[in-house]
């Protein structure tokens, strides 16, 4: 196995060690952005309830995705306005694809 020594920071200390590829960079990790509505699973868009510019509130269903014969409601995670909507009815989407963006 290839050994690539890198640095891993724990409690302010730089450790020289092997870090596997794709391992999250501990210094710059992000948490999921609540402004972004992403597909949690690959599937098809069966319903679009909002248009660009429309105001939405937390919990409101903005899109419906069908995957594995189930309807999955995509909700707004924050109150705001739809800034962009990237899909329309019938579109196939991949897991993690950005479907819509909301601004405060």
């Amino acid at each position: 196995m290839q050994t690539k020594l890198q640095e891993l920071i724990i409690d302010d200390t730089f450790y020289e060690t092997e870090v596997p590829e794709g391992y999250p960079d501990r210094r710059f990790q992000g948490i999921p952005d609540p402004c972004e509505a992403r597909a949690i699973i690959s599937g098809a868009i069966v319903k679009v309830n909002v248009r660009k510019g429309q105001r939405v509130s937390t919990g409101q269903v903005i899109l419906v995705l069908e995957a594995m014969k189930m309807l999955i409601e995509v909700e707004a995670e924050i109150d705001g306005r739809i800034e962009e909507i990237n899909v329309s009815i019938g579109d196939s989407v991949r897991k993690d694809q950005l479907l819509a963006r909301i601004v405060d």
Binding site: L8, I10, T17, E18, P20, Y23
Partner: peptide, 8 residues
């Protein structure tokens, strides 16, 4: 194993 991920 200190060699991998500092043994965390």
């Amino acid at each position: 194993q200190p060699q991998f991920l500092a043994g965390v």
